[in-house]
Simulated scan of single mutants.
Amino acid sequence: MRWLLLILLLTGCSAFPLPATTTAQVDRVPQGTLDAATARASLAALPVSAPGRMDGYVRDCDDGKACVFGQPWFDTDGDGCDQRSQVLARDLTNVERKPGRCGVQSGTLDDPYTGTQISGTSKIQIDHVVPLAAMWRSGAAAWTPEQRVAAANDLRNLVAVSGKVNQSKGDKTPDEWMPPNAGYACSYGRIYVTVKAAYGMTVTPAERSALETALASCASPAT
């Protein structure tokens, strides 16, 4: 046994298996996300209001249904690559495309919501950080269809995450749900406020309080 330990030390090998998960980068945010200070100021400027009614909200696009935010993953820039594929290519590493296509068939995600690593795409979903139902209740019901399609496909609001965790979030707002990985609270709050401010949406008192708490977790800039 003593000889085995000596060999392990000399070769740099470990007698114990390494964990299969890793800690995700807690500061990874989409391009265009506000910094913490600007997010705090923007949050303070958002109008506070009770949530609007859900009347008229239909997300489903099948069988001629209302589809108020348009077909999912619309190719907004016309480059032939839909928004889901663009987010997967942006957020995953070791990305492999489908032959002759822009679709992503494999890659590795450092999931910011759980702090774990996920391989492959079958267990990965794209989250609308500000849920579409929350958009509807905070102003989108009065938007034009074109504005809603643009907001639903805004890359600043789309993050690749664990599908299981995304399902648990559903349409919940920050006062109802935050990522299990507490280290991502600051980044999540910044993304959320960025989108709310960009489209002039309202926040509820509870939503605003939860976002203030999330942004309070942001590290102060080095002096």
Rank of each mutant, 00 (worst) to 15 (best):
L132V: 11
A198K: 12
L215K: 02
R148L: 03
R84A: 05
R208I: 03
T76N: 08
D35A: 11
Y57R: 08
C102Q: 03
S119L: 13
Q86I: 13
T121S: 05
A50Q: 13
W73R: 08
G32H: 00
S209C: 14
A185Y: 13
F74S: 15
W3G: 15
Q25T: 14
E176D: 07
Q147M: 05
A182E: 15
N166E: 02
R40A: 10
A45K: 13
S220F: 14
G32D: 06
E96N: 12
S187Q: 04
A152R: 04
M135N: 06
A197P: 01
E207D: 10
V165S: 09
T204L: 05
A140L: 03
A160S: 11
D55Y: 10
P145Q: 06
G80I: 07
Y199H: 05
L155M: 14
M54H: 15
S106T: 12
R28S: 13
R59W: 01
T114R: 09
S209W: 15
A150L: 08
Y184A: 05
A197S: 12
P19L: 04
T93Q: 08
T223Y: 14
R101W: 13
K196I: 10
D171T: 10
V129W: 08
T22P: 11
W73H: 07
Y192I: 06
D175E: 05
W143F: 10
G64K: 03
G183H: 06
V29F: 07
T21I: 13
A50D: 13
G80S: 08
R208F: 07
D82V: 02
A37W: 07
D127T: 07
R208D: 07
S217I: 02
Q31P: 13
